[in-house]
Design a protein around this nucleic acid. Structure first.
Length: 605
DNA sequence: ATTAGGG
DNA sequence: CCCTAAT
């Protein structure tokens, strides 16, 4: 198709944990045949989360890409995956952290050794011919982002920059920006331009970093230099950290944020990337710290941009007791070794009372300590045991893998032990997660957005549907149970996308539509799409016959669905029902889709 | 795992 | 939206 943009974090140690494997397997292998493009193009949220981009986004990015492309390819030639991996491997110097822990070192080293083996095997291009395919992908993606090792920061930034085009009001911030020279006022303006909202924070440093982060969409932002060029962060002091974890972290506790961690400790950072939940956990801590500044923006901003964890796939059970149990003691104790040093470190550095924090410093901002309210239904116990979190899973998987390798040179109980740890870790991890955030992405975009036929989300307010347990209503179920039903109003753009998706791929191919047209909306399952379509259909059929009542609704706010859309829905429905019999040849509706689209556009004029 | 339908 | 049956 069009531009293929592979984006990967290029943090050191990135390839250690599940990063590499995960990206190669989950991004390329699954549906390569179906539609590779979508899987290659990824954008990274401010929090480091990967979000598959949508077609629209692809287009969007495509333009901006024109320039960087050349440069990137050049880079890709020199710093390809192989070199990258090897250098990463060695430079990612596993330990550093252990010293501060000083326990069960033997075990740690064992594990690390195992890990090394695993990754060497799997990542070494020469020894893994079967990985060719994915490797290509990697070189495409990693290559773009992987500059020579010593330029990791910039590399990552550039990678992220590609994706940043999705940020608000970017255009005017192009070129070189030197935040250092800006006054607070200017910073505020820039901030607003960048994030689309104001801030009351007067901490220059913070503002600069925040903006820099926003612009580069990277968490790898230096604390001392803020020059942004072409959406890339030019970091003047790349060398300056690396071996001061314990002392450093003890140094400036108040200002320290996740980003600082990223900068200061690559390992930490990569781990965080892998264990997003951990980040979110940390963020909780930081939230409280930030609050010490008394600036409530600090808090909200931080969270908004670094919102991490993708909503749990589903229910986190209502095991109230579990929560009240000493998760603090237990988890801290159980995580001090193995591949989760980062967690333990943090735990040490900042003993975090896993106590509930109802509100902070008078700001009234609530920072939910735990959110187990994701909908509920008794889950398979197996899941509960495995660590249901996507990430928790990956961690667990990794650990298990390591354990397996170790197994070769170690007693059996060892592996079992590891697995156990993995479990407990993911268990713990899943706790401090999610923070409910009132994310507004309601837009009452009028019909004009329909004109474009694409999602013209008024504000780029993170359509990635990052969570937020917005309206969660509990509904009594017949059998005395209570099921939580959260409602998410369908925005116009969503509907539009759905319609377009149906027109393109046909009604019924919801998983496809979900992946392609709704890639950026993490909520909205294929089932949701189906349901919505059903409703649309119903609506369109109910309305079209009698053209009278089109908008006679007095509650216009409730039902904004433009007649035009309904119209198209009906047509599509007809076409589908008619054509589908014959269309066993693939994508039948395609033509119909275009047709409908045209008509759609015309109708809208 | 995805889809279709009923609730 | 949720839930389930059927693929």
């Amino acid at each position: 198709m069009e531009t293929v943009v592979g984006v990967e974090r290029n943090d050191e140690g990135k390839f250690e944990e599940s990063g590499f494997e995960k990206s190669s397997s989950s991004l390329s292998s699954p549906k390569l045949g179906a539609d590779p493009v979508v899987y290659k193009l990824v954008r990274i949220e401010g929090d480091g989360r990967f979000v598959p981009a949508t077609d629209d986004e692809i287009m969007e990015v495509g333009n901006l890409l024109a320039d960087d492309k050349i440069e990137m390819h050049l880079v890709a030639d020199t710093g390809q995956t192989g070199g990258c991996i090897s250098s990463e491997r060695t430079s990612s110097g596993i330990p550093q952290l252990e010293n501060s822990e000083g326990l069960s070192q033997s075990e740690n080293t064992e594990v690390d050794a195992g890990k090394s083996n695993v990754h060497l095997e799997e990542n070494d291009p020469s020894s893994a011919p079967s990985m060719n395919e994915s490797h290509i992908n990697q070189s495409g993606s990693v290559g773009e982002c992987s500059n020579p090792p010593n330029e990791l920061v910039e590399g990552q930034s550039s990678a992220s920059a590609e994706c940043t085009s999705l940020n608000p009001d970017f255009s005017k911030l192009k070129g070189e920006i030197c935040l250092d020279n800006l006054s607070i006022k200017e910073l505020h303006e820039t901030f607003k331009a960048t994030f689309g909202r104001e801030t009351t924070v007067k901490d220059k440093q913070w503002l600069k970093r925040r903006i820099a982060m926003g612009l580069t969409n990277s968490c790898d932002v230096s604390t001392s230099s803020f020059v942004i060029k072409d959406n890339k962060l030019v970091n003047k002091d790349k060398e300056e950290n690396h071996n001061n974890l314990g002392s450093d972290s003890a140094k400036a506790p108040a200002v320290r944020t996740v980003n600082d961690n990223c900068k200061d400790s690559p390992i930490n950072c990569s781990d965080q990337m892998e264990n997003l939940q951990a980040v979110s956990g940390e963020r909780l801590r930081n939230s409280s710290i930030d609050d010490d500044f008394g600036a409530e923006d600090l808090n909200t901003e931080e969270r908004a941009a670094k919102r991490v964890r993708k909503p749990t796939r589903r229910y986190i059970e209502e095991l109230s007791e579990v929560e009240s149990k000493e998760h603090s003691g237990k988890s801290v104790a159980s995580t001090k070794n193995s591949g989760l040093r980062q967690i333990s470190i943090k735990s040490n550095v900042r003993p975090f009372k896993m106590a509930r924090m109802d509100s902070f410093g008078g700001s009234g901002v609530e920072v939910p300590y735990v959110c187990r309210v994701r909908r509920s239904r008794p889950r398979k116990n197996v899941m509960a045991l495995m660590g249901f979190h996507p990430i928790g899973m990956s961690v667990a998987a990794t650990l298990v893998k390591k354990a397996l390798v170790v197994h070769n040179t170690q007693p059996n109980n060892e592996s079992g032990d590891e697995a156990l740890k993995a479990r407990s870790v993911s268990e713990q991890i899943q706790q401090p997660v999610t923070t409910a955030e009132p994310e507004k992405d309601k837009q009452l975009s009028a019909v004009d957005s329909i004109d474009q036929g694409q999602n013209v989300e008024p504000k780029h307010i993170d359509p990635s549907g990052d969570t937020s347990d917005e309206n969660v209503v509990t509904v009594p179920t017949g059998k005395g149970g209570m099921r939580r039903k959260h409602h998410r109003a369908w925005t116009l753009s969503e509907v539009t996308k759905l319609v377009e998706g149906v027109s393109r791929y046909g009604a019924g191919r919801w998983s496809e539509i979900k992946r392609l047209a709704f890639a950026s909306y993490s909520y909205r399952t294929s089932v949701d799409l189906k349901d919505k379509w059903r409703n649309l259909l119903k609506a369109s059929l109910a309305q079209t016959p009698q053209d009278k009542k089109i908008n006679s609704r007095k509650h216009a706010s409730a039902m904004p669905i433009p007649a035009a859309i309904l119209l198209r829905v009906r047509e599509l429905a007809e076409m589908q029902s008619q054509v589908s019999p014959n269309l066993s040849s693939g994508k039948p509706v395609a033509s119909a889709g275009r047709n409908g689209l045209m008509e759609f556009g015309e109708v809208n004029c």
